[in-house]
Design a protein around this nucleic acid. Sequence first.
DNA 1: CCCGCATCGTCCACTTTGTGGACACCTTAG
DNA 2: CTAAGGTGTCCACAAAGTGGACGATGCGGG
Lengths: 260, 260
Amino acid sequence: MDDAGVAVAEQGAQVVARVGAVLRVLGASAGAPVPTSRVAELAGLTRPTAHRLLAALAGEGLVDRDAAGGWVLGPEAYILGAVAAERYDVTALAADAVREIARATGECAFLSARRGDETVCLLREEGSFPLRSHVLYEGIRFPLGVASAGLAILAMLPDAEREAYLARADLVPAWGPAHAAEPLRARLAAARATGYVVNPGLIVEGSWGMAAAVFDAAGRPAWALSATGVESRFGPDRRGEIGRVLLEQAHAVTQRLRAR
Amino acid sequence: MDDAGVAVAEQGAQVVARVGAVLRVLGASAGAPVPTSRVAELAGLTRPTAHRLLAALAGEGLVDRDAAGGWVLGPEAYILGAVAAERYDVTALAADAVREIARATGECAFLSARRGDETVCLLREEGSFPLRSHVLYEGIRFPLGVASAGLAILAMLPDAEREAYLARADLVPAWGPAHAAEPLRARLAAARATGYVVNPGLIVEGSWGMAAAVFDAAGRPAWALSATGVESRFGPDRRGEIGRVLLEQAHAVTQRLRAR
DNA sequence: CCCGCATCGTCCACTTTGTGGACACCTTAG
DNA sequence: CTAAGGTGTCCACAAAGTGGACGATGCGGG
């Protein structure tokens, strides 16, 4: 998976696409410093190019280096984000829903947002149960259809949009045969039937997840609430209970968004 | 003031500098949509170039357009900022200080951060007094030395750094003769004597401001708390009282930062 | 209703700018 | 002391960005 990009760019500005890829790499590291060569690798660039872009971005304050020379997002990124938050922040409206899911289920709970063909994890709340999955953390990205949040959102998209995505995305090379179009379609259909989705350890063996979609004011699935934990905590009995909690909280957040 | 940039770039990546300028323009608009031609003007670019960059940035999700075609910062900017916030966010530590200043003085209170040769307003809290200054709002930028926050930070910089800035900055064309090096030095010296700075309506006639610097763990002035209002509320008597409140709160925030 | 006037989006020849293979350097590991 | 893996920099090459010019669009006034 050399270019984890959202596949856009087209004509006009190749550099901008590369800058976007670099920034996304740093964003997905959850604030941990990333060495130059790894940025290059993850962004699909040669090392000199990555280095030049990073140095230029550092001049703008969009990235910064820690003492060891690793790259992190910079103060300017924070400032821009603070302004953009007025328009896009949902964590304030969803924070207590995530907390309630963690409390009621004992598992780790998350809020993720759709971003193009990916989902991004925005909030994480630890559950009380001592065995916890650390597959998800703030900033990490998955393609739609991978991880329970992306499954929940994909399931609730209009049929045409969902099929268009399934046609252009090929998840098998990076995520294995369980993410081929057919088994995916089956999982999505099941999700539409119950309202919530179950990811039975498809990313990491034994790490299960469940999610329910949150809808924007236009009725489109734009976020998802999810819970993850070890397989033994997701037996048929508890699945119903966790699903109920997820749906309830997802509905509450959707209502709050509509009221805003 | 065609290029409000922080003056960096140098060799290596001209496009990155331009991207930075474009993003800064949108950040400084406080979330209000900016038309293409105005972005071009403020970023010092030709309109086709600005348009191409904006379109490419939109492809990355870093900018977005509202219904009327104006440009705003996009969802990706918010997401990156949320990750960067873990490292750079101070608003959580300073929010109650800003609130306390607004409460105790009745004026509008602000937190600003230093960003290179500029300050950026991060927090605004309305005061109770009905005549309020709207010169400052979240996202707006001023060069160091302009507006009370930038004066407070500049005053507390090490002598060599302050003089180097005064030597390279020329504030007179954009901000008038009151911002020439000499009167500025006098204001800064007065600020060092009292600990807080007074801006007697130098940006907008009749809009006064006062500020005190907040220091980072290394003892460098990196933020400022300020209050603004109409001239009549800044008589000699009240100046002492407002200055006291500002210093007290600035000290409290500095302590909290050190403890972090 | 029609005609300026102001914005906007797009095209394409020109050339500035970014590119990346190659090299030198530094630190750490064996 | 040498090998290995990381980093920063150079520069010939050409690909990519640039912006003047044009046509489309939308608004307001005559």
